[in-house]
């Protein structure tokens, strides 16, 4: 399983692997918003947590269809399904690989982008905390969506539509943590809800993803 993770990371880092795509998209969202809503620092700092979370979520969504599509096209997925690895393990490793190549860079870049959005100083730690807790859920849910649409030609649109409603709870509680943190309020309850969502999705969705992969490989 480690071999699969290492291979996926290598593929992501090499030419055409799509590493940095999410980061670039995140940067685009964050730099364009001030042009759209005007350069008022107070307004920006008010909407900063929400915009940063939305940007991270959309950036994550952008790279989802690569999770299984490439392996499906070149036949690796069939070979992995007949290999000693359980498909549940393949799905879990794929989510982890996706998080390492999109979620983690977003978390690391978020403080910098927070400055661009004039995020209040108190908001930085809650923002990073909420992204750290929330982005794994985005990757795991996304992997499930990618498994549902694997084998469909240009299934990207369907994938986005399937996954968006599943992303809503994570977005609500994640943005809530960042928002309340920026306002200096207590963040305990949304943080606990966010942690609960992440734990639940990590525990359950790899199994669901493996089940739909099996059905889709027929």
């Amino acid at each position: 399983m480690i071999a699969l993770l290492i291979r996926d990371l290598k593929l992501a880092l090499r030419a055409g692997g799509g590493f940095g795509l999410a980061l670039a998209f995140f940067l685009i969202v964050v730099t364009l918003v001030p042009f759209g809503v005007g350069p008022d620092p107070e307004l920006l700092s008010k909407i900063a947590p929400g915009i940063l979370w939305l940007g991270a979520l959309l950036a994550c969504l952008l790279s989802l269809d690569r999770i299984f599509a490439l392996d499906w096209e070149d036949g690796s997925l069939d070979l992995l399904a007949t290999s000693p690895l359980p498909l549940e393990g393949v799905a879990a490793i794929k989510s982890f690989g996706h998080w390492l190549t999109t979620g983690l860079p977003l978390i690391l870049a978020a403080p910098l982008f927070g400055v661009l959005m004039n995020l209040p100083a108190t908001g930085f730690i809650p923002l990073i905390l909420s992204l750290t807790l929330g982005t794994p859920a985005l990757s795991v849910i996304g992997t499930f969506g990618a498994a549902l649409t694997v084998g469909l030609k240009r299934g990207g649109l369907l994938l986005s539509l399937l996954v968006l409603p599943l992303y809503v709870p994570t977005l609500i509680f994640g943005a809530q943590v960042a928002q309340r943190g920026a306002e200096g309020l207590s963040i305990t309850s949304p943080l606990l809800m966010l942690a609960g969502i992440t734990c639940g999705t990590i525990a359950l969705l790899p199994f669901a993803a493996a089940a739909v992969l099996k059905a889709n490989l027929r």
Binding site: I2, A3, L4, R7, K10, L11, R14, A15, G16, G17, D71, E73, D74, G75, S76, D78, L79, L80, T82, S83, P84, L85
Partner: peptide, 29 residues
């Protein structure tokens, strides 16, 4: 777990070298 399957598609990753492709499958199995 006694078989190996080879389909029309070879499951080769274009950006990995020949040796890396084989080493990956050796590690998986």
């Amino acid at each position: 777990d006694g078989f190996a399957y080879a389909s029309h598609a070879d499951g080769i990753k274009a950006t990995l070298s020949v040796e890396e492709n084989l080493t990956f499958w050796a590690q998986i199995f």
